[in-house]
């Protein structure tokens, strides 16, 4: 990546973000990727005058991450989305959909956690998706 990436810890996150806000940065979005079975990689993208800046947070799935939505209201949707997709918990969300932003009960839970879903993925195609209607045993409960 061309731009600067800064690693942060979960504790320092909100402080860093608030600092960036003071500096006049706006939140672009969060990108979350699964690193392995227990860790997620979250990139916070910020922008100022079309220049990007990223914060990188490695978050264990089990632990909750502080929400930055009180600082940047715009983070509300994307944090809810990550809750849906990865099952990661964000503490202090302004509006918390609790994993129902996109997904219904019968849909696959935490669909982006492919390490934990690998077995379900073996059978690809519509069958897998239909299968998901009946809460797959391997799917992580949110």
């Amino acid at each position: 990546m061309r731009e600067e990436i800064m690693a942060v810890s979960a504790e320092a996150l909100v402080g860093e973000v608030a600092k960036l806000k003071v500096l006049g940065y706006r939140l672009v979005t969060l990108s979350c990727t699964e690193l392995d079975a227990s860790n997620l990689d979250i990139l916070y993208h910020f922008d100022k005058d079309l220049g990007l800046k990223h914060l990188r947070l490695t978050a264990p799935k089990a632990a909750a991450v502080p929400s930055i939505s009180p600082v940047y209201f715009a983070a509300l949707l994307v944090e809810n989305e990550i809750q849906d997709f990865f099952g990661l918990r964000f503490e202090g969300l302004v509006v918390d959909y609790r994993g129902t932003l996109y997904l219904e009960e019968e849909a696959l839970k935490t669909p982006y956690c492919r390490f934990s879903l690998r077995s379900a993925d073996q059978r690809e195609g519509p069958a897998a998706a239909l299968d998901a209607e009946t809460n797959h045993p391997n799917a992580e409960k949110f």
């Binding site: 996109y102 696959l108 669909p111 195609g125 998706a129 239909l130 998901a132």
Partner: peptide, 9 residues
């Protein structure tokens, strides 16, 4: 999108 996880068909 047939194979996507949230697609019924």
């Amino acid at each position: 999108f047939r194979e996507a996880y949230n697609v019924v068909g």
